[in-house]
Write a protein that binds this DNA or RNA. Structure first.
Length: 605
RNA sequence: GGAGCCGUGGUGUAGUCGGUUAACACGCCGGCCUGUCAAGCCGGAGAUCGCGGGUUCAAGUCCCGUCGGUUCCGCCA
């Protein structure tokens, strides 16, 4: 049998237009849908570029016969003529709807089993179980929404690289097999075969390497860096993720902020055509907490918190009075028109506050006859008037109060604020509200370890004016760090680094690290700093989160080709899995007895 | 480690106060059909309700446990 004539694809399905009429084209793609009229067969044919209607007439001979056997997701090649559709037969819902391809020849390149879930319904989109989608991600990916997200991710990466290239940055790859470091997240470990009993760690970030690159004189570094953190997952957290990692020499905070703002401007313009305009607003950490109860406030809506501690200093309500007396605060929030809340909805608010550790949440409804509240009988006219003034209460408003230690009260009410923002539909979609949060504390107290730990990381420079506090009151010292926040998501953060040995040693001391420990863990960096480290600083931005927000998605899994489930497994490959005894032996590893349980089901069931 | 929600043919859902033949749409298979585009019409196959235990005359439904998914807290920049 003679070898079949070789066909070369000439066009993308979605690219064909009336201007192409009369041309003979060769298309290759998937069968999205077949409409068989007996004497006439329509195939919606799909490739990455889009969809086009292919018509098979009975006079097409073999092609017509084969077309009768086509099923969804068959891979086919079609030779035919681009033809303007008959008058009145155009489909305005299709980019190619003015034309169709009249088929002359058809080849089935590969048949397909019936997909386990619909790839195209034609109707309203129905959510398919995510595990099923992930197990058959290669099918899920054929859906236009997923293709859009993946392509958007590519565009964002391209825009990022283009931007940094224009700005004179050098992309440098840093090791994936590196050294475990203390501080920060739990490491993923990789056993060394050559060095029995020793382990590499996958990088939580290229932090130390990028600083070494500065010592190395690269001056401007960036990388789309893969990072690994063995911590529990969230909708916006994966065990492996990508960050836009940046470091610059001979700069100060303003240079990093300016560069990052212009990066955002470029990426948003190049990907979704949205104009964002620097400079972005800035809040100090303290102000962000005070007004929004969060270090990553969503400032797309108001509903700000107000400190009403003084109103209740001599309050008859014992819990409030006691909280104030013991140095705590009362934080308040006015939910306009919240008086219409049902008792059930009010209880729900109390419950929400409870999940964030609130001991209670007091609500006060302001209505015509006066106020309604579980603590109404304890409140004096003076106190109510003061509340009205402080919170600018109007008739029909709902005031929510949390009494606790300042930080706790703010955080709880900040969460209640977010909940209310969603519930009252106060959050404008399609809005991108960037914000810098600056002047973070340098340290925070770790109750478990009974010592200070770095809020950012141990190489973060203190504010010059707070240097003296390092040795006297570390808790009050602030750092030259900055977080970029977008719509309530922490997009990234960075800092100006310490490049002088003397300050670095004082930091280690405040962290409770001995000279020996510091040498053991970071000796190579400290040594490098002795060879002429330039002043430097940088930032790292969550690339997955950024793409998620660009795509308008609620989970970064929608923007990652092959993400993991919340329990850090991959339904497609079955990872993680067991390995052979031989592999373990080579690595000098013995697995401790596992709690016996049912074997996990195979990937193919 | 903890809390909430979800789990019913291939997919998405319904299933009331526990009541005996588990419903609907899409998909799938077969037939008819020359202008559809969520094609149409006719016929058919397909689920013992995630799993285990318990309560009951009777469990998809109630209870306990467990597994998986998801959201959140803790954890994590």
């Amino acid at each position: 049998m003679a070898a079949a004539e070789k066909w070369t694809r000439t066009d993308g399905c979605g690219a064909l237009r009336p201007a192409n009429c009369g041309r003979t084209v060769t298309l290759m793609g998937w069968v999205q849908r077949r409409r068989d009229h007996g004497g006439l067969i329509f195939i919606d044919m799909r490739d990455r570029s889009g969809v086009v209607q292919v018509v098979f007439n009975p006079d097409a001979g073999d092609a017509f016969a084969v077309a009768e056997s086509l099923r969804n997701e068959y891979v086919i090649a079609v030779k035919g003529t681009v033809t303007r559709r008959l008058e009145g037969m155009e489909n305005p819902d299709l980019a190619t709807g003015e034309i169709e391809v009249v088929a002359e020849e058809l080849r089935v390149l590969n048949p397909s089993r019936t997909p386990p879930f619909p790839i195209y319904t034609g109707g309203p989109l129905k959510e398919v179980d995510e595990t099923l989608r992930l197990r058959y991600r290669y099918l899920d990916m054929r859906r236009p929404e997923m293709q859009r997200n993946i392509i958007l991710r590519h565009r964002a990466a391209k825009a990022t690289r283009d931007f940094f290239d224009r700005e004179g940055f050098i992309e440098v790859e840093t090791p994936m097999l590196t050294r475990s470091t203390p501080e920060g997240a739990r490491d993923f470990l990789v056993p060394s075969r050559v060095h029995p009993g020793e382990f590499f760690a996958l990088p939580q970030s290229p932090q130390l390497f990028k600083q070494l690159l500065m010592v190395g004189g690269l001056e401007r570094y960036f990388q789309l860096a893969r990072c690994f953190r063995d911590e529990d997952l969230r909708a916006d957290r994966q065990p492996e993720f990508t960050q836009i990692d940046v470091e610059m020499s001979f700069i100060d905070r303003e240079d990093i902020i300016d560069t990052t703002e212009r990066l955002m401007q470029a990426v948003f313009a190049d990907t979704i055509g949205v104009e964002v305009t620097p400079p972005f607003p800035r809040l100090s950490y303290r102000e962000a907490m005070a007004r929004f109860g969060s270090d990553k406030p969503d400032i797309r809506f108001g509903l700000e918190l107000v400190d009403v501690t003084e109103v209740f200093r001599d309050c008859q309500f014992k819990i409030f009075a006691r909280t104030v007396a013991s140095g705590g605060t009362i934080q308040g929030l006015n939910a306009p028109k919240g008086a219409s809340f049902t008792r059930r909805e009010l209880d729900e608010l109390v419950e929400v506050a409870g999940t964030y550790g609130a001991k209670g949440l007091v609500w006060i409804v302001f209505e015509d006859g006066g106020i309604r509240s579980p603590i109404a009988k304890f409140l004096s006219e003076t106190e109510i008037d003061a509340l009205k003034t402080r919170l600018q209460v109007k008739m029909g408003d709902l005031v929510l109060l949390v009494a606790d230690e300042r930080q706790a009260a703010l955080e709880i009410l900040g969460q209640v604020r977010l909940f209310l923002g969603r519930k009252l539909d106060l959050i404008p979609k399609d809005k991108f509200s960037f914000l810098w949060v600056v002047d973070f504390p340098l340290f925070e107290w770790d109750e478990e370890e009974k010592r200070f730990v770095s809020v950012h990381h141990p190489f973060t420079s203190p504010l010059d004016e707070d240097l003296a506090l390092l040795d006297t009151e570390p808790a009050l010292a602030r750092s030259k760090s900055y977080d970029l926040v977008l719509n309530g998501y922490e997009l990234g953060g960075g800092s100006i680094r310490i490049h002088r040995r003397e300050i670095q040693e004082r930091i280690f001391k405040a962290l409770g690290l001995t000279e020996a420990e510091a040498q053991d863990k970071f000796g190579f960096l400290l040594e490098a700093f002795e060879y002429g480290a330039p002043p430097h600083g940088g930032i790292a931005l969550g690339f997955d989160r950024m793409v998620m927000l660009l795509a308008g998605q609620g989970s970064i899994r929608e923007c990652i080709a092959f993400p993991k489930t919340q329990r850090a497994t991959c339904p497609l490959t079955g990872a993680p899995g067991s390995v052979s005894p031989r592999q373990l032996e080579e690595l000098s590893i013995r697995v401790a007895a596992l709690p016996s349980g049912p074997e996990k089901p195979d990937a193919e069931g």
